[in-house]
């Protein structure tokens, strides 16, 4: 079995250059025209961003709708969007716009925010590097993941879903090299609901799931 190469990553966030959105219509228009990296950042890279908050929703549009627009209906609809289940960023964009357009159609006035609470569009570069660490067998995965940084967990379990083979995390792809031999591990990894975890919780959940499947403690 080829050893699993543990990577780590750092998220380098920057302003996108798009004007801020002061109201829901501006948010809609910016989402319609922004680059894929902007959309990806606000949906997928939020867990890797330094924060003091553990918000209800993992995407920034839902959080902003709840906290600043004060539109809990919209927040709930946007919050359930799963970017990893979509065929690609354009599908995600279309789904997001559909929800916002529906909401704009329901409202009698366009919700807006006070100055200072605008939605600020960002994007990021993920700087990826080899940590030099190697995992040699699936049973070593659980203890290795326990030692991993948040960056490693993000890169191998979340960011991997966007890379070929699309929709497959790196741990599962590696285990699959051995065919069905380690299928309990695959079932465990596939059972984790990634929408509701901070990276720290996700690490614990991965360790728990793998140990239940026979991994080392």
């Amino acid at each position: 079995m080829t050893p699993f190469e543990v990577k780590d990553c750092a998220l380098l966030i920057r302003m996108s250059g798009l004007p801020p959105a002061m109201n829901l219509r501006e948010l809609r228009d910016r989402i319609a025209s922004c680059g894929e990296n902007v959309l990806y950042h606000h949906f997928c890279e939020t867990t890797l961003r330094p924060t003091f908050d553990d918000p209800d929703y993992r995407n920034d549009f839902a959080v902003w709708s709840k906290l600043y627009l004060g539109d809990r209906v919209l927040a709930e609809r946007l919050g359930i969007l799963d970017p990893y289940s979509m065929g690609g960023t354009e599908e995600l964009r279309a789904a997001t716009l559909e929800i916002i357009d529906d909401r704009l159609g329901e409202l009698t006035m366009v919700p807006w925010v006070r100055p200072g609470d605008e939605f600020l569009f960002k994007e990021a570069t993920t700087v990826v590097f080899d940590t030099g660490e190697r995992i040699h067998a699936p049973k070593e995965l659980a203890p290795a993941i326990r030692r991993m940084t948040n960056g490693s967990v993000y890169y191998h379990f979340l960011e991997a879903l966007r890379r070929p083979p699309v929709g497959k995390d790196d741990f599962s792809s590696w285990i699959l090299e051995e065919g069905e031999k380690y299928s309990p591990y695959l079932v465990s990894l596939g059972s984790i609901d990634i929408q509701f975890h901070s990276l720290d919780h996700l690490r614990k959940e991965l360790v728990r799931a793998l140990m239940q499947s026979g991994g080392e403690t």
């Binding site: 990806y40 994007e123 570069t125 990826v128």
Partner: peptide, 8 residues
Amino acid sequence: RGERILFV
């Protein structure tokens, strides 16, 4: 370079 992923 300003791409989304930078391998170093």
